[in-house]
Design a binder for these strands. Structure first.
Length: 762
DNA sequence: CGTATATATCTTTTT
DNA sequence: GATATATACG
């Protein structure tokens, strides 16, 4: 945050000792607030709905409100429930409240819905059939479990992909529907009309495994509260004040959860912005905002419309864009500050293709850096994860430091999940999913047939897989070889288990990975990614050092799937638009504004305008992340799958107000689609064309009124033996040519297969 | 049971 | 192009 930012709490800590609550009305708390913000803080009695636009200081309101309640001694910290949407937001909030009220902040009930749900279920889970050490399945485990259930039920998994069924089940859970509450009409003919049965069977399997999925963390809470009034009452009594952040992204189950908990004291404060609702695909219901006013007729509504973040130009652009949505409560953002000389227009840049776009963005970044801008004040926000790759490559070649937030998630990597499965087997011998995952990793001659045998036996005898396996090794059911392998594995497991108390989690993990042969497996692996995997395993063991017990670590893993990115580094941030919600930067780059990418194809396919409206809200979120400058860009050609495809500028670009937009597209790329504009790069090695990288690639030809890219099969003049340069791999010699695919022996990077468009003659 | 080869599907977005 | 699953063969 810049020093001039009115919300820069961190830069202006309250003068007095942070451990002592300050007197009420202390200017350093309230004086900085505008009248609406102040209202949102001071109306502590009864339900309050705060509709707060982007950049209107909603986080500050929440934090001040918490501090205010504590400072006024309206409640003890453990009597306050504060719910956020992400772990990151929870962490930040705790830190900032701690800055105001001191260590008291530690005892707040503050976290995500899911984390708080776990906390409750760990304590009262027995009442809904869960032992307190239940495990939380990640999406991969969920899918495998459902597949098993479907197989047992004889459902054709070709016709009804488990993924589809799973997402339907999850929707039901998001709505707070247990299997007995799903009506046949909701299930339709999904999975041959057996969807509800599958749901029920899936839930039963989860309970026998003593496991939950993400949805259950809330769903079980609801059943718990409904069936056990005394438990509900305990929490209703406790929570005198409830605060909810990102309220527009709550789903029905979460809403019901909140409504049950706040019934006694009715001091519920929800903060949200319908224009920033971007999680409907996860079951979020903007309708919860309307429902709030209906269910709490005495609710006070406070609107925060003064934007302290962005320049008037950016606000005008964002407002004009979101105005194209039909379905909104209607809310205008007013610039709070006076417009200054730095009020630059929003730029729109059209370029030839993806790599060109990345090149341009990073040139701009370097230019800003030369002017003295900090890299950490800039961000590239993309629609989907795969768009990050092109930028990463360019960052690597230019050497500009960058930081990927929420990219491929660490704990979701194959090798990490394997390592975790080992730990789970040790802590919880009944964890069948974990056991199944690692029985044959590394190869122990325990193949599918053996696993099937174990399964059958476990089911009939009502045992866990590990127990069943142990019993089977005492028989002659299995081949001598596999019997021996199983015996060793199970013996190892119990040996490691007995070591658990004597060793730190990190040491234990290191020993397990070593003795199981898991590390060795990857060391012997010659595939290019093996070294990286070993590296990750090392990092994994290193990360374990911070944990005292394996249990605590596993809990962390299942709830916090994000990387703890070391912030503060001087680096450009690159992340998805979803990940960027709630953040702000001086300069924001918004690449890939093309039809089918943004709005995403799936949103366009999805019939009605609702999906596109959500995409538009996403665009709105992107624009409003910027304090000073927004750069939108799009490419005329994009490589999708393995083919080049022409693309059209996003409809969102044409929805931006002309007077606030500066078009800086390269020649012929903007506003002239369908006209004969392709001179300069129509063929081959277009010498002085402005498309140096386009040579030898595909030539655009006009067909009808849309761009078509001719699939040229020539290799653009590359031949075996030629010396070339590649941005990522450096110099090398061409070994073979197959249409556009080249095999190249690089001086440093070794043999690689690359696409001709990524190399140039050396 | 393991390995090699073919093939289908893929790309939203996250707790 | 990459990854996961299916099939054939040793």
């Amino acid at each position: 945050m810049t020093p001039s930012d009115p919300f820069a709490l961190d830069d202006n800590p309250p003068p007095s000792s942070p451990s002592e609550p300050q007197p009420i009305g202390d200017p350093s708390w309230l004086a900085g607030l505008n009248p609406e913000q102040r209202q949102a803080v001071e109306i502590t009695d009864g339900p309050v709905l705060v509709l707060s636009g982007a950049g209107t200081g909603k986080t500050r309101v929440l934090i001040t409100r918490l501090a205010y309640i504590l400072g006024k001694r309206l409640a003890q910290p453990w009597q306050i429930l504060a719910v956020t949407f992400t772990n990151r937001a929870a962490r930040e909030m705790r830190e900032r409240v701690g800055g105001l009220v001191g260590p008291m902040a530690e005892s707040l009930w503050l976290g995500t819905f899911h984390a708080l749900g776990v906390r409750i279920l760990r304590k009262h889970g027995e009442l809904v059939g869960l032992k307190s050490n239940f495990t939380i399945l990640d999406s991969d485990d969920q899918l495998r479990l459902l597949k098993q259930v479907m197989e047992a039920d004889g459902i054709d998994h070709k016709k009804w992909p488990a993924q589809v069924v799973l997402s339907v089940i999850q929707r039901w859970k998001d709505k707070g529907l247990t299997p007995d509450r799903v009506t046949p009409s909701m299930a339709g003919d999904l999975a041959a009309g057996r969807a509800v049965d599958l749901y029920r069977a899936y839930q039963e399997r989860l309970i026998t495994l003593n496991a939950t999925d993400f949805g259950d963390l809330l769903l079980h809470c609801l059943t718990l509260f409904q069936d056990h009034a005394e438990v509900l009452q305990e929490y209703q009594d406790r929570f005198r004040y409830i605060l909810v952040d990102e309220y527009q992204d709550t789903n029905v189950a979460q809403y019901l959860w909140l409504r049950l908990l706040c019934q006694k004291h009715r001091n519920l404060c929800c903060v949200g912005d319908d224009d920033q609702s971007i999680y409907s695909w996860r079951g979020a219901e903007v309708g919860n905002i309307l429902r709030f006013e209906k269910d709490f007729t005495d609710a006070k509504v406070v609107r925060l419309e003064r934007n302290y973040r962005s320049t008037p130009t950016i606000l005008a652009a964002a407002s004009a864009l979101i105005d194209h949505n039909e379905d909104r409560l209607g809310k205008t953002l007013k610039p709070a500050g006076e417009s200054d000389s730095e009020d630059a227009p929003v730029t729109v840049k059209g370029v030839w293709d993806g790599p060109e776009e990345a090149r341009w963005v990073i040139e701009e970044i370097e230019a800003l850096q030369t002017k003295g801008e900090s890299l950490s004040s800039m961000a590239i926000l993309v629609r989907a994860g795969f768009q990050m790759l092109e930028f990463e490559e360019r960052f690597i070649t230019t050497g500009v430091p960058y930081r990927v937030v929420g990219g491929p998630r660490f704990y979701e990597r194959l090798e990490i999940r394997d390592a975790i499965a080992y730990l789970r087997c040790i802590t919880t011998p009944t964890d069948d999913l974990a056991f199944e995952r690692i029985v044959n990793k590394p190869k122990r001659s325990i193949g599918d047939t053996t696993v099937q045998k174990i399964h059958v036996y476990a089911r009939s005898a009502g045992l866990s897989l590990m127990e069943a396996a142990l019993r089977l090794t005492e028989t002659d059911e299995l081949r001598a070889q596999t019997r021996k392998a199983l015996t060793t594995l199970i013996g190892d497991m119990s040996r490691w288990r007995s070591l658990r108390d004597g060793l730190s989690p990190a040491d234990l993990a290191a020993q397990v990975l070593d003795e199981s042969g898991y590390t060795e497996m990857w060391m012997k692996d010659t595939s290019p990614e093996a070294p990286g995997r070993l590296e990750n395993l090392k990092e994994f063991v290193g990360g374990l050092e911070e944990w005292d017990t394996i249990g605590a670590f596993l809990e962390h893993v299942s709830l916090v799937m994000e990387n703890d990115s070391k912030a503060g580094d001087e680096a450009v941030t690159i992340m998805t638009l979803h990940g960027a919600k709630g953040l702000e930067f001086d300069t924001v780059f918004l690449p890939g504004w093309e039809e089918e990418i943004f709005p995403h194809r799936r949103a366009l396919d999805d019939g009605g305008g609702a999906a596109v409206e959500e995409e538009r809200r996403l665009a709105y979120v992107g624009l409003t992340r910027a304090r000073k400058k927004v750069s939108i860009s799009y490419a005329a050609n994009r490589r999708v799958y393995n083919q080049w495809q022409a693309s059209l500028p996003s409809r969102f670009i044409s929805e931006l107000p002309n007077e606030h937009i500066e078009n800086i597209s390269d020649n012929g790329l903007m506003g002239s689609f369908g006209e004969g504009q392709s001179e300069g790069f129509s063929d081959g090695w277009g010498g002085g064309s402005s498309w140096p990288k386009a040579r030898g690639r595909k030539a655009p030809v006009i067909e009808g009124d849309s761009w078509q890219v001719e699939a040229r099969e020539s290799s653009g003049g590359y031949a075996v033996g030629m010396r070339i340069f590649h941005q990522k791999f450096g110099y090398g010699i061409i070994q073979s040519v197959d249409n556009t695919r080249l095999e190249i022996a690089f001086d440093k990077a070794g043999d690689k297969k690359v696409i001709d468009s990524f190399v140039e003659p050396a």
